[in-house]
């Protein structure tokens, strides 16, 4: 591969990376917001309340993301009611279809992570909170959820990285993300291996930065785990 060809593809791939990051940021945030009520309903002792999230999680974890993406992007347009409703301008747009599908998909996984964390909150802390007269919703808001979020952070970080990799599928519905851009470039310069490897290096770089950011957050949220300050007197 010549240097010119390499330098030529870098700015294009960088603009693809921006789209990938936009999709990732949107789905990581919306996914988390959706996951909280799902996880809360999932841990409920009333069977009819936990049935909905159970079905939701079963569907989104048991089918390929590609099927989910095509169901939203191609599938919803089958219904006249959808095509004539006010949401059609959003659902017609590939970007929003990808953002919606990724959010719904990752919400299923994040809610399972949160469920694990909620169930891992020590019973004694919940009992103590009740003993000092907190109401059930107060116990959730001030004790269980903050504790659960902190415990779930490493797994949430893993999920974000999985989502980064899964976001490559956006290229199948015409979006020019990192992978989509690489595909277009390789069909022009006829150097698929070199182009895809360069795109891969972009993904690895993003993964590297994300892992370190999550690790930084973790240290920030666990002041108790910080190295003790040595006082040399």
């Amino acid at each position: 591969m010549t240097w010119e060809a390499f330098l030529e593809m870098l700015p294009k791939l960088a603009s693809g990376a921006v789209l990938t990051l936009e999709l990732l940021l949107l789905s990581a945030c919306i996914g988390l917001l959706l996951a909280v009520p799902l996880a809360l309903a999932r841990v409920s002792k009333r069977w009819w309340l936990s049935l909905m999230p159970r079905t939701y999680i079963f569907f989104f974890r048991g089918t390929p993301l590609l099927v989910q993406l095509f169901l939203v992007y191609y599938g919803l347009g089958q219904f006249e009611a959808v095509r004539e409703s006010f949401v059609w301008p959003v659902l017609r747009d590939a970007f929003w279809c990808a953002a919606i599908t990724f959010s719904l998909h990752t919400a299923a996984y994040i809610s399972e992570i949160l469920r694990g964390a909620i169930q891992a909150v020590p019973v004694g802390e919940i009992e103590a909170a009740r003993a000092i007269g907190m109401r059930p919703h107060q116990v959730y808001i001030s004790i269980i959820l903050p504790r659960a979020f902190r415990m779930a952070l490493p797994a949430y970080g893993n999920e974000i990285i999985l989502m980064l990799k899964a976001s490559a599928l956006a290229s199948t519905i015409t979006l020019m993300d990192l992978t989509g851009t690489a595909k277009t470039i390789s069909s022009i310069n006829y150097m698929p291996v070199e182009t895809f490897v360069t795109a891969g290096a972009f993904y690895l770089a993003i993964t590297y930065v994300l892992t370190h950011f999550i690790r930084f957050l973790e240290r920030h949220l666990h002041p108790d785990r910080k190295e003790p300050v040595m006082i040399v007197g």
Binding site: A166, A168, V197, Y203
Partner: peptide, 17 residues
């Protein structure tokens, strides 16, 4: 390396490469 790359990108590389 492989665990840091999107599965889809690996598939494309293998097929076209």
């Amino acid at each position: 390396l492989v665990r840091g790359l999107p599965e889809f990108l690996v598939v494309l590389t293998f097929y076209f490469g």
